[in-house]
Simulated assay, not measured.
Amino acid sequence: MSTSITPEKLAELDNLLDRQQVLDCLVRFSRGMDRFDRELFLSAFHADATIAAGPFVGGPADLYDWASELHGQGQSATHHNLLNHTCDIEGDVAHTETYYLFVGRNRDDSNWIAGGRYLDRLERRDGRWRIALRTNAIEWSGTAPTMPIPYAEVPDIHLNGTPARGKDDPSYRRPLTNQRKTHIPD
């Protein structure tokens, strides 16, 4: 079995690395919005990017301000889930289609869900992939019945951290550790 890397394999590896960097960029957008992390959110966009999302058309900083106010006033939690993803790369330009499922826990305890696709043009500038143009194809929306959040009554449920919309969320903790005692329910 040969272990030599052919030029074709190198090109394929380069393409896979680019695709992963593109996907990482899209995840930074979603996580930045859900955690209200402005710096992370903005790192997904070139400063001169244009975004068309619902009634909003403008740049990334204005989008963050508008969306964080909308989500902050209307919802106590949001999840911008990324699903099916296609990515066509030609040189320093990538065109992607990424299906999404948005879920928001509204402040009145109802749940709003919506689905659609992010259609993005990303550009690699100075070696970094970022969104240069985004349009949002919203394809459906609705509400889901409300139920209590599971296990809220467990006394030590938040010892490992309480979900938060900011850098005090446990996902930012390094190293991540467990503070809860071993317990196997009956």
Rank of each mutant, 00 (worst) to 15 (best):
F45C: 05
S76Y: 07
G74S: 09
I113M: 03
F56I: 06
R107S: 13
A137P: 04
I51S: 03
Y100A: 13
D88T: 13
V27W: 03
F41I: 07
L101S: 14
A49H: 00
N81Q: 13
A49P: 01
R125Q: 11
L101N: 14
T50A: 10
A53K: 07
F56H: 01
L40D: 05
F45E: 06
E123A: 02
S76V: 13
V22F: 05
G115P: 02
G54I: 06
H95C: 08
F41N: 03
G127C: 06
G32Y: 02
R121T: 15
T96L: 12
L133C: 05
E97S: 14
W129D: 06
G127I: 02
R124T: 11
E90G: 05
F45K: 00
H80V: 02
G58R: 01
Y118V: 02
M33D: 11
F45N: 12
G74N: 09
R128K: 15
D62M: 01
N106L: 15
L122P: 08
V57T: 12
G91M: 12
F102P: 03
R125V: 11
D120G: 12
Q21N: 10
Q75W: 08
H85P: 00
D120Q: 05
V57S: 07
R125S: 09
R19A: 05
G127T: 09
P55M: 07
V103S: 14
G32Q: 01
D65K: 01
Y64D: 00
A52H: 05
I113R: 08
D62W: 04
G116E: 02
W129Y: 04
F56K: 03
R28Q: 10
L101H: 15
A67S: 13
D120M: 09
D92Y: 04
V57F: 08
H85F: 13
A114Q: 04
D108W: 07
F45I: 02
G115S: 00
G58Y: 08
Y99Q: 14
R38S: 02
G54W: 03
G115E: 04
R38E: 15
D109P: 05
H79G: 10
N111R: 15
R128H: 15
N111I: 13
F36A: 13
N136K: 01
T50K: 03
G104K: 09
L133M: 09
D126T: 14
L70T: 11
A52R: 12
D24G: 00
L23Q: 13
V57I: 10
T50E: 15
L63T: 11
F36S: 00
W112K: 04
W129G: 01
G72L: 08
Y118N: 09
R121S: 04
L40C: 11
R125F: 05
A77L: 10
T98S: 14
R125G: 08
P60Q: 05
T50N: 06
